[in-house]
Design a binder for these strands. Structure first.
Lengths: 233, 233
DNA sequence: AATGTTTTTATGTCTGCACATAATAATCTG
DNA sequence: CAGATTATTATGTGCAGACATAAAAACATT
């Protein structure tokens, strides 16, 4: 009996998935090496490599040179969140997007901000606060600090028509960043602007981006109650 | 003058990144095709392909057959969250992990649960509630429903020593799932168990996983105040 | 026994070539 | 001119073979 041949990397991947799933290759176990699998599957080693590498990327396999490939003992679920501009997020929900600038000023930020942005404590940054609307209802509150040393062009932008969220996406490239999700109680001011009762539980996204070594912008987005960030596994 | 040669796909990727970043290839613009780039970089087309494919995966490029490759107009930031078992999460913070089972019963779930799990409305599911501790302080509350038709082995597991969170990870494979993050107000019971004041803002993770077409488990994790889910961009 | 060195080996990646596939562009046809 | 058909083209993927590299294992040395 000849083994069925797997001609493309997707089918190889599928077969490997099946074996892991069926516990033919239990968690933590070393699987055959690429050359052997290539032989068994009747394809080139490169094809097996492509399939296994992709599975390793998704966290199902652990690979190390010489040590070989083993089934991840605890498959870390990797949830990928697509963070796009808020306008798109709203429009994808089938709502009409609206935008209101609340404040635009050059100011000396709180120490906590200059600290995490690594800007001089006494230096001014551009401070932009705005409200994003979905079908005329408050959707999210944006509180942003922009490093004008890195993005001087931001100084000549009013942010009254286009949100800083969107403008920066197109005008301020970044090389890295960090993002945090948390739950916060609405401050009186936030409650007022989002038109919710004080101390409501709100979803917050804090993001800090930088370009090489200089920070570009730090932003906190506070979403109206009921917001849920979703993704698939 | 000969162009510098880029011998590996990482350096090709870096160069492409640089050009995008430097606006040599502005957002939305079509970039040269693989064959031309390979020629320019002095490497094989497969190498260029590897570099570009990887950049497309990370959302910086849009590629379509025949249409060519263009710089993403709005680079969607993809944040990858690693969802592991809570024990590891706690231990990685350098805390001592603790676990307390609150309830384990077979019960008919609320309609909302049987509905999303697509189980018979009148059928029983295994209901497990537990508290996860970090350095003896409440860390997260787990409220879980398990489809015993799919995971019958769960019926012979007490979940008094090992959390359902961890046990399922190792014993119940799944093919897909969805996950949602939100902010909720603590119910009186939740507030009591997490030892926080009533109506505190808490971070909630709702997860539903399934195996092919049958749902495996549905869980809500409520984290103690101050929790922040973080990742890099 | 502890330490340093060499060998072995599985994965990582490059090359050059071929063909597949999808989508656009060009052409033909009623 | 609209609609259907065909050609073209850029990406997608396959193959075989080669060398690079990291790390474990075996061996040698002090």
């Amino acid at each position: 009996m000849t083994a069925p041949t797997f001609r493309n990397w997707q089918s190889v991947q599928e077969e490997v998935r099946r074996r892991i799933h069926a516990r033919e290759w239990p968690p933590g176990e070393l699987i055959p090496n690429e050359a052997d699998l290539a032989m068994e599957f009747g394809c080139a080693r490169a094809t097996v490599n492509r399939a296994l590498r992709s599975l390793a990327d998704s966290g199902l396999l652990d690979r190390r040179r010489k040590a070989g490939t083993r089934v991840a003992a605890q498959p870390v679920a990797k949830a990928t969140l697509d963070i796009s501009v808020i306008r798109k997020e709203v429009e994808e929900r089938g709502c009409k997007y609206g935008y209101q600038l609340i404040e635009r000023s050059e100011a000396i930020p709180p120490l906590e901000v200059s600290g995490s942005m690594r800007t001089p404590a006494a230096g001014t940054l551009l401070h932009v606060r705005a409200l994003h609307l979905a079908d005329d209802a408050a959707y999210a509150l944006e509180d942003r600090w922009i490093n004008t040393t890195v993005v001087p062009k931001a100084l000549s932008e009013g942010f009254d028509q286009i949100s800083a969220n969107e403008w920066l996406m197109a005008n301020a490239p970044y090389t890295g960043g960090e993002i945090g999700f948390s739950a916060v109680q609405a401050t009186p001011e936030e409650a007022d602007m989002l038109r919710v009762s004080e101390r409501s539980a709100l979803f917050a996204i804090d993001r800090l981006t930088w370009d090489h070594t200089a920070s570009v912008t730090k932003v906190r987005l506070i979403y109206a109650p009921g917001y849920q960030l979703r993704t698939v596994l």
